[in-house]
Amino acid sequence: NITNLCPFDEVFNATRFASVYAWNRKRISNCVADYSVLYNLAPFFTFKCYGVSPTKLNDLCFTNVYADSFVIRGDEVRQIAPGQTGNIADYNYKLPDDFTGCVIAWNSNKLDSKVSGNYNYLYRLFRKSNLKPFERDISTEIYQAGNKPCNGVAGFNCYFPLRSYSFRPTYGVGHQPYRVVVLSFELLHAPATVCGPKKST
């Protein structure tokens, strides 16, 4: 009989979030998941669920729940959905087409922007091929755009693959930082360890 609440607040209220290319994953298990708490945590810009209804979450049980978190800019949030393409979905964080879970995003301009520009958040701009779903690539190998090998040196047709967002508070919403948490629900042929409040007794 599990009584402890799932530590969603640790994920959502973390002081620092990860850069999207090096997104963070927390496995959540053996706890009571009260998803209604999430609705009250922040004024969400996005709370979209796929393959599951957000209002039914509190009635369900899962084997595992994974919470992935990272920062992107406002106009990239739409890429965090099944079947999307674009720089983020292709080279940084890719959801599977049959994704079961929820994408939660909110504006973090007050936390993640600086007047002089916050350069701490990076994204991958160049990659030889698209990522597979939930693949994480943290390599910093020089990207070869031409025929000549780069031998690890940046220059003509040889690019450092990561680029930094420079978040400034005066930017338009599309270029402001957004914190994203992706909850993916895993149903294996194994005992369910993460249940809503109704199912945990």
Rank of each mutant, 00 (worst) to 15 (best):
N40F: 06
L95Q: 00
F45Q: 15
F12G: 02
C158F: 03
F45P: 15
K56V: 09
K48E: 09
L131V: 09
W23S: 04
N151E: 12
L125F: 13
A81S: 07
D34F: 06
V52L: 11
I2S: 13
L95G: 00
N1L: 06
Y143C: 06
N87T: 15
N64V: 13
A67G: 00
A67D: 01
R127M: 03
S53D: 15
P169Y: 06
V103F: 00
N1V: 07
C31R: 04
P54W: 15
N24I: 03
T85I: 08
I28R: 00
Y123G: 04
S36I: 03
E10F: 05
N120P: 14
A192N: 12
C6R: 02
V194W: 09
I2G: 13
G83H: 11
D97Y: 07
T85H: 15
F185D: 02
D137I: 01
F44A: 15
V77A: 04
P161C: 03
G83P: 01
R163Q: 12
T15S: 12
K48A: 07
I72F: 01
Y159V: 10
R27N: 14
F126P: 02
L188P: 12
N118M: 06
E10Y: 05
F8V: 03
F70M: 03
G74S: 05
D112Y: 00
L122P: 02
R168C: 09
G174Y: 09
A33M: 15
Y93H: 01
Y119E: 15
E186P: 06
A67K: 01
L131E: 05
F156Q: 15
L131A: 04
Y123N: 05
N157I: 05
R16F: 09
A154T: 14
L57S: 05
N147H: 13
P161K: 01
C49G: 00
V103I: 07
F62D: 07
P197Q: 15
N64K: 10
F156H: 14
V115N: 14
G152F: 06
N40R: 14
N58W: 07
C49A: 00
T55M: 13
I80Y: 01
H189M: 10
K26R: 13
Y93Q: 01
V153D: 10
I88T: 03
A105M: 06
V71H: 01
P149T: 15
A89L: 01
I80P: 02
G83S: 08
P7Q: 12
L111H: 11
L111P: 06
Q176W: 01
R124N: 04
L183R: 00
G196P: 13
N4Q: 13
L5R: 13
K132R: 13
G152N: 13
L125N: 13
L122Q: 15
Y91V: 05
Y178I: 07
N40P: 08
G174N: 15
W106T: 01
T170A: 12
W106G: 01
N151T: 11
R73P: 06
L187W: 10
V103Y: 00
V173M: 13
D112A: 01
S129Q: 14
K148W: 10
Y123K: 09
F99L: 00
T3Q: 09
A192K: 11
P82Q: 01
S53K: 13
N151F: 11
N118I: 04
C31V: 05
V194C: 09
T46C: 08
N30V: 02
N87R: 12
P197G: 13
P161Y: 01
V103R: 00
S113F: 05
Y143K: 06
V115W: 11
K26M: 09
N64A: 15
T140G: 09
L57M: 08
G86P: 02
C150M: 04
I80M: 03
P169A: 09
P149M: 09
L41E: 08
N30M: 03
N130L: 11
D68R: 02
A81C: 01
R78I: 09
L187N: 14
P133I: 01
C158Y: 01
V65K: 01
C150F: 05
G196R: 10
A81Y: 00
Y178P: 01
L125C: 14
S129F: 08
I138R: 08
Y159A: 09
L187H: 10
K48Y: 04
V20G: 04
V52C: 08
C150A: 05
Q144S: 10
K148H: 12
T85V: 10
V173S: 12
S113H: 06
G51T: 01
S200L: 14
L95S: 00
G172P: 13
K94C: 01
E76H: 08
K198T: 13
T193V: 09
C158S: 04
S113D: 07
A42P: 14
A192H: 13
N30F: 05
C61S: 07
L5P: 14
K128A: 11
E141N: 11
S184K: 08
Q84E: 11
Y165D: 06
I28P: 01
N107R: 05
F156R: 15
N30P: 07
T201D: 14
P169I: 01
I142Q: 06
Y123L: 04
T85W: 03
P54F: 15
I104L: 09
V71C: 05
I104G: 02
L187R: 13
S19L: 02
L41D: 09
N109W: 08
I2W: 11
K198Y: 12
L38H: 03
R25M: 02
K114I: 10
S19G: 04
V103N: 00
A105L: 03
E10R: 08
T85G: 08
L57H: 04
S69Q: 04
A81D: 03
V37L: 12
F17Q: 03
P169T: 09
Y66L: 09
N120V: 11
F12T: 03
T55C: 08
A105C: 06
N107H: 04
F99M: 00
S113P: 05
A14Q: 14
T170N: 14
I72S: 02
Y143Q: 08
N1D: 09
N130Y: 10
I142N: 06
L162R: 02
V103H: 00
R168W: 09
K198V: 11
V65Y: 02
A42K: 14
D68Y: 03
T140C: 09
P82S: 01
V32L: 09
N30I: 02
G172H: 14
V20D: 04
S164P: 13
V115E: 15
A81H: 02
Y66M: 09
R163F: 07
R127V: 04
G174P: 10
P7C: 09
P54S: 11
P133G: 07
T140Y: 08
A22M: 09
Y66N: 11
G174F: 08
Y21L: 04
H189V: 10
A42I: 11
S29N: 11
V180S: 00
A89R: 02
I104E: 00
N87F: 11
T55E: 15
N24Y: 03
K199W: 14
V115P: 15
A192E: 12
N40K: 13
H175W: 14
I2H: 12
K132G: 09
K94M: 01
K94T: 07
P82F: 00
L41C: 08
P149K: 13
P54G: 09
R124V: 04
I80R: 02
F12Q: 01
I72M: 04
D90R: 09
A14R: 08
Q84S: 11
L38G: 02
A89S: 07
P161M: 01
